[in-house]
């Protein structure tokens, strides 16, 4: 029972982590809470569904197609709604992000015709593997593998490539990076693209796992993933992974322990408690106040 719930929690946490990475990277570089990120995830799920249901492609092609749509979308959102506001107050891009979020939810609802959820065709068999008393379904295995691969890939990109170095430099100090000849606009675009790719993958995986997608699915998952990013320490990539897993496990065990009616509150409660003791999250750097 315990290990079974742990498996459920880790799978859920892995999807939170995928989405949380997008929040954390963007925040690390331009200090913006990208509230439209949840909608990118939602659109990723819809693209995946269309590919699988209409074009009958296999799961990996659908995953790539969702990424291919979401990457330009996220870059476009940044260009239109955030870049003109980069030097204004902190709240202006936030409101703009909310505008994007409402716009995309309504757009998808209008194209779809109604806000009702759609199911996801079976692209992965319902095979169940037993490891002692613990059961893994194939889809859980796929989620864990794909999520881990993407995260490792991201970590390598950030650590060892030129653009990754530029990202770290920009995140450290935007102004100085700009002065040192780094094209920060490219870095920001790349960050949005990378976040969108992960969110799109998250959308397709969640769509398959829970079998239901709808135009408003990005809202709660987005908020919870953002919580995960903050819990782990926003701006920190390992932090987002840790935060996602922690929240997923906490949620599953909270429900199992009988706090099912307070399920939605578990993430937020955990967030507040952690922030009170570690004001910048588990793996976040302390804020330095400059005079």
């Amino acid at each position: 029972m315990f290990f079974q719930q742990l498996v459920n929690g880790v799978t859920l946490g892995a999807t939170y982590a995928l989405i949380a990475l997008g929040y954390t990277m963007v925040y690390g570089i331009i200090q913006l809470i990208n509230f439209a990120h949840g909608e990118v995830y939602m659109i990723g799920a819809f693209v995946g569904l269309i590919m699988v249901a209409v074009y009958k492609v296999n799961f990996f092609i659908a995953l790539l197609a969702a990424m291919a749509v979401c990457i330009p979308l996220a870059v476009l959102i940044e260009r239109v709604a955030y870049r003109p506001l980069r030097n204004s107050t902190r709240l202006a891009p936030l409101i703009s992000a909310l505008g994007v979020s409402i716009f995309l939810q309504t757009l998808v609802t209008l194209i779809k015709g109604d806000p009702n959820p759609l199911g996801f065709p079976h692209v992965i068999q319902d095979t169940v593997y037993a490891l002692g008393p613990v059961k893994f379904s194939l889809i859980q295995v796929v989620i864990l593998i794909v999520a881990s691969l993407l995260m490792v890939f991201l970590e390598i990109t950030v650590k060892y490539t030129k653009i990754g170095k530029a990202m770290r430099a920009t995140s450290e100090d935007y102004e100085t990076a700009n002065l040192m000849g780094i094209n920060v606009n490219h870095v920001v675009s790349f960050t949005f693209a990378a976040g969108a790719a992960l969110a799109a993958a998250g959308g397709v995986l969640v769509g398959m796992y829970f079998n239901s997608i709808n135009p408003f699915m990005g809202v709660t998952v987005g908020l919870k993933s953002f919580c995960a990013a903050v819990v782990g320490g926003i701006g920190s990539i390992p932090g987002a992974m840790l935060g996602g897993l922690l929240l997923g496990i906490a949620e599953v065990f909270g429900v199992a322990a009988g706090f099912d009616t307070y399920k939605e509150a578990i993430s937020f409660g955990l967030l507040i408690i952690i922030l009170l003791f570690r004001p910048t999250g588990l793996l976040g750097h302390p804020i330095q106040r400059k005079v």
């Binding site: 029972m1 079974q4 719930q5 459920n8 799978t11 859920l12 969640v206 796992y209 829970f210 079998n211 239901s212 709808n214 408003f216 699915m217 709660t220 949620e251 599953v252 065990f253 429900v255 199992a256 099912d260 009616t261 399920k263 939605e264």
Partner: peptide, 20 residues
């Protein structure tokens, strides 16, 4: 007795409890 939330998509914890 189990409770779930509207718009929830993940019921693995509740079902695991029921399986007992």
């Amino acid at each position: 007795e189990q409770s779930i939330m509207e718009k929830d998509t993940n019921f693995s914890a509740q079902v695991t409890s029921l399986s007992q």
